[in-house]
Amino acid sequence: MRQAGSGPTLVMVLAVGVFFGTGVILLLERSLTRILLGVILLGNGVNLLILLGGRSGGAPIVGTGPVAEMSDPLPEAMALTSIVITFGLTALLLAIAYRSWSLTGNDEVQDDLEDRKIVELAERNEVAATDVGGDDHADDPEQVNPAPALRRLRRRDGG
């Protein structure tokens, strides 16, 4: 592998770069399956990066060898934690992809209606409606008049 005290090998650093690059590219896709694979690759890249940050050596158990030749246990513990978190996120995304597949027949993420409106406005070089501000509902058409809801609450409470 590598000698104690030497830095990470070029192959490992390139592997981290490939994992991160491929993972980010897959995360930008619209298919939930590709997004899932991107999360898995990013998780593996993070694990490898964490392990590259530690010192290599013998088992970190007191009494088995000199302390200077022991590996650092913190990156190993962090990598195990990262594996568990990545597994949980993978299970969640897999469930979401399966649910999307069972409901719609495909796993493509659809555009939101608001996203489509923003794209249409951008194509026409228009600006969305500005917030005119104000605390009163009469001054700002975006504000909702709270009076009807308060009247319903008072009637329910008997007041």
Results as ranks from 00 to 15, higher is better:
residue 24 V to N: 02
residue 22 T to G: 08
residue 90 T to F: 13
residue 154 R to F: 12
residue 50 I to K: 05
residue 118 I to H: 08
residue 16 V to I: 14
residue 141 P to N: 03
residue 60 P to N: 02
residue 15 A to K: 01
residue 48 L to C: 04
residue 85 I to L: 11
residue 94 L to D: 01
residue 89 L to E: 05
residue 133 G to Q: 11
residue 158 G to E: 06
residue 74 L to K: 08
residue 157 D to Y: 12
residue 44 N to M: 15
residue 54 G to H: 05
residue 109 V to F: 05
residue 87 F to A: 13
residue 28 L to D: 04
residue 99 R to S: 10
residue 118 I to V: 09
residue 13 V to C: 05
residue 74 L to I: 14
residue 153 L to K: 10
residue 145 N to K: 09
residue 109 V to I: 15
residue 46 V to S: 14
residue 60 P to S: 02
residue 149 A to Q: 11
residue 47 N to M: 09
residue 53 G to L: 04
residue 61 I to G: 01
residue 115 D to S: 15
residue 65 G to H: 06
residue 44 N to Q: 15
residue 31 S to D: 15
residue 127 V to I: 07
residue 45 G to I: 01
residue 41 L to G: 02
residue 104 T to Y: 13
residue 150 L to G: 02
residue 123 E to N: 08
residue 54 G to Y: 02
residue 11 V to E: 08
residue 37 L to D: 07
residue 120 E to C: 01
residue 76 E to F: 14
residue 33 T to H: 09
residue 58 G to L: 14
residue 31 S to I: 00
residue 17 G to Q: 00
residue 98 Y to G: 13
residue 145 N to F: 06
residue 136 D to R: 12
residue 135 D to W: 12
residue 110 Q to M: 13
residue 141 P to C: 05
residue 48 L to K: 03
residue 34 R to T: 08
residue 62 V to C: 00
residue 6 S to P: 00
residue 38 G to C: 05
residue 29 E to P: 00
residue 73 P to D: 06
residue 39 V to Q: 12
residue 14 L to H: 02
residue 42 L to V: 10
residue 32 L to T: 04
residue 100 S to W: 08
residue 11 V to Q: 09
residue 67 V to E: 13
residue 93 L to W: 11
residue 61 I to R: 06
residue 20 F to H: 06
residue 139 D to N: 13
residue 73 P to H: 09
residue 99 R to C: 03
residue 121 L to G: 07
residue 1 M to E: 03
residue 97 A to G: 02
residue 34 R to A: 12
residue 17 G to Y: 00
residue 41 L to I: 02
residue 115 D to W: 15
residue 85 I to H: 00
residue 21 G to D: 04
residue 93 L to F: 13
residue 144 V to E: 09
residue 118 I to Q: 10
residue 90 T to Y: 06
residue 119 V to R: 15
residue 102 S to I: 04
residue 47 N to V: 06
residue 143 Q to P: 00
residue 150 L to I: 13
residue 82 S to D: 07
residue 96 I to Q: 05
residue 60 P to E: 01
residue 15 A to V: 11
residue 5 G to K: 02
residue 40 I to Y: 07
residue 38 G to D: 06
residue 103 L to V: 10
residue 28 L to E: 04
residue 8 P to M: 09
residue 45 G to A: 04
residue 132 V to Y: 01
residue 149 A to W: 03
residue 136 D to L: 11
residue 15 A to D: 01
residue 151 R to H: 12
residue 114 E to Q: 12
residue 105 G to V: 07
residue 2 R to F: 00
residue 8 P to D: 06
residue 121 L to D: 09
residue 137 H to A: 15
residue 152 R to F: 03
residue 45 G to C: 03
residue 134 G to D: 10
residue 35 I to G: 03
residue 70 M to Q: 15
residue 129 A to R: 07
residue 104 T to L: 10
residue 74 L to F: 12
residue 18 V to S: 01
residue 103 L to Y: 08
residue 5 G to V: 02
residue 68 A to R: 10
residue 54 G to Q: 04
residue 68 A to I: 15
residue 71 S to Q: 15
residue 102 S to Y: 04
residue 37 L to Y: 11
residue 101 W to G: 05
residue 44 N to H: 15
residue 60 P to I: 03
residue 115 D to H: 15
residue 3 Q to W: 04
residue 24 V to A: 03
residue 10 L to W: 10
residue 128 A to I: 07
residue 122 A to D: 07
residue 63 G to V: 07
residue 87 F to E: 06
residue 39 V to I: 13
residue 116 R to G: 02
residue 79 A to H: 00
residue 141 P to W: 04
residue 124 R to K: 14
residue 122 A to M: 06
residue 29 E to M: 11
residue 135 D to G: 14
residue 143 Q to K: 14
residue 57 G to Y: 04
residue 156 R to F: 14
